[in-house]
């Protein structure tokens, strides 16, 4: 019941600048219902993870990372090193020890 879900989040390509220069961090997510009592999902998905990140780790202005209920276009998301577009994007259900990476394409080249 009160078990936490452990996942690793990683930031690169400049996205780390929005997270206090943190490049990787292991996080322990509480049961979803304690974090978001109104959530329609039973289990953590990327959609709720974004909300958790905004509340807990994001230090820069929110609009630099998020747009509507997703990441800002131009930020790539990898789930265990694979493009989230192959895995349902926001609807992807998090599993124990998942590695979720956010890479900005918006920084200078």
């Amino acid at each position: 019941m009160a078990e936490t879900l452990t996942v690793e989040v990683m930031f690169g390509g400049g996205a780390e600048l929005l997270f206090n220069k943190v490049k990787r961090k292991e996080i322990a997510l509480p049961p979803l219902k304690t974090f978001l009592p109104d959530s329609q999902n039973q289990n953590w998905t990327l959609k709720e993870l974004l909300i958790w990140l905004k509340d807990n780790l994001l230090v820069e202005r929110e609009e630099l990372f998020l747009k509507d209920d997703s990441v800002r276009p131009g930020i790539l998301v990898l789930i265990n090193e694979e493009d989230w577009e192959l895995h349902g994007q926001l609807n992807y259900e998090l599993k124990e020890n998942d590695k979720i990476m956010f890479i900005s394409t918006l920084h200078g080249g």
Partner: peptide, 21 residues
Amino acid sequence: YEKEIVMYAHYKKLVYFSTEC
């Protein structure tokens, strides 16, 4: 595409510099 450039750099583990001017 920019997306593929970034993915290529990531998978090839190329070191690059990203910050804002």
